[in-house]
């Protein structure tokens, strides 16, 4: 029996919310991206904690897949940031409002 599951889940929640705040507050696209990675990691931590508490290997398989997707996302996302920077000379998201109708 490991340390109480609650602790890991709480840590996961704290990291997740820090990631959310990063997405909401920061203007730098790269830091926003980092925050997203942080949120993914928070979720991974919860998954691994559950997996180890209940002895189910599937949780860690899912973590493995999440990491793969995060890698793919990082590659594409960073490529988008580069392309964006090349066009707009900025990575400040408040100056990027292509969605405005």
């Amino acid at each position: 029996m490991h340390l109480a599951l609650n602790w890991y889940l709480s840590l996961s929640a704290i990291l997740f919310v820090i990631g959310v705040l990063g997405v909401l507050l920061r203007r730098n696209a790269i830091v926003i991206f980092l925050s997203i990675e942080l949120m993914l990691n928070a979720a991974n931590l919860a998954l691994v904690a559950f997996s180890q508490t209940f002895g189910d290997v599937n949780g860690q398989i899912l973590v493995f897949f999440v990491m793969s997707v995060a890698a793919a996302e990082a590659a594409v996302g960073l490529a988008i940031i580069i392309a964006l920077f090349r066009n707009r000379e900025t990575v400040n998201v408040s100056e990027i409002n292509l969605f405005r109708g």
Binding site: I30, N44, V48, Q52, F64, M67, A70, L78, I81, I82
Partner: peptide, 30 residues
């Protein structure tokens, strides 16, 4: 510490080793 050594190693390899290097590289590039 959760006895999930495999995932821990993967975490270091992929995140710290690959993804974060990619980030730093892009930050420097821009």
């Amino acid at each position: 510490t959760l006895d999930a050594a495999f995932i821990g190693v993967i975490q270091v390899l992929i995140y710290a080793g690959a993804i974060m290097v990619l980030f730093l590289f892009v930050i420097m590039l821009l």
